[in-house]
Simulated scan of single mutants.
Amino acid sequence: MSIVESLEVSAKANNYKAIDKVWLEIGPFSGVEVSALEFSFEVAVRGSIANGAELEIIQTQANAWCFSCNKTVMIKQRYDACPLCSSSQLTVTGGEELKIKQISIKE
């Protein structure tokens, strides 16, 4: 529902009449089950500015900063070791996002 609320706010601020497509970026550590979101999106947008809008999911990769080798690396799980130096001193820098990347408006 917060996605729909964000779409409504954006539409009102920009005088959009209707939204026909929404692109969402979702990271593997966001805690979002993509199939559940796809199912619930259709129900959530009913009666809103995005009624009937198509949903496009962009799944992002998880990244972390390695303190030992000073590099950004791709990881598969939150507590993975650095694939370059095997250090366990990593901090997650990407993969937690759930955000509206883009919207397409009806003319």
Rank of each mutant, 00 (worst) to 15 (best):
M1E: 06
S2N: 13
S6K: 12
L7S: 12
E8G: 10
E8S: 12
V9T: 06
V9F: 10
V9R: 13
A11W: 03
A13R: 15
N14Y: 13
N14L: 10
Y16D: 03
Y16K: 14
Y16S: 04
K17S: 15
A18S: 15
A18W: 01
I19Q: 10
I19G: 03
I19T: 01
D20H: 14
K21C: 15
K21S: 13
V22Y: 10
W23N: 12
W23A: 11
L24P: 01
E25C: 09
I26A: 04
I26V: 14
I26T: 05
G27Y: 08
P28K: 07
P28R: 01
S30N: 06
S30R: 08
S30G: 05
G31T: 09
G31L: 02
G31H: 04
V32M: 08
V32F: 07
V32W: 05
V32A: 00
E33S: 06
V34H: 08
V34S: 08
S35H: 14
S35K: 15
S35F: 06
S35N: 10
L37S: 02
L37P: 05
E38R: 10
E38F: 03
F39P: 04
F39N: 05
F39M: 12
S40Y: 03
S40P: 00
F41Q: 01
V43Q: 15
A44L: 14
A44S: 14
V45Y: 01
R46S: 11
G47K: 13
I49H: 10
A50H: 02
A50M: 09
N51R: 05
N51E: 15
A53W: 12
A53N: 08
A53D: 07
E54L: 09
L55P: 09
L55T: 05
E56P: 00
E56N: 03
I57H: 14
I57G: 13
Q59D: 00
T60K: 14
T60I: 07
T60G: 13
Q61I: 02
Q61G: 11
Q61M: 01
A62Q: 07
A62K: 07
N63C: 07
W65K: 11
W65A: 09
C66S: 11
C66D: 09
F67T: 07
S68A: 15
S68E: 12
T72F: 10
T72R: 13
T72H: 13
V73K: 02
V73F: 09
V73A: 02
I75P: 06
I75G: 08
I75D: 11
I75R: 07
Q77L: 06
R78P: 00
R78N: 02
Y79S: 04
Y79K: 07
D80A: 11
A81P: 09
C82A: 04
C82M: 03
P83D: 01
C85F: 03
S87N: 00
S87E: 06
L90W: 04
L90S: 01
V92Y: 10
G94R: 03
G94N: 01
G94Y: 00
G94I: 00
G95D: 03
G95F: 11
E96S: 08
E96D: 00
E97G: 09
E97K: 01
E97F: 05
L98K: 06
K99I: 05
K99D: 06
K99C: 02
I100V: 15
I100A: 00
Q102G: 06
Q102E: 11
Q102N: 14
I103F: 07
S104M: 07
S104R: 09
E107D: 11
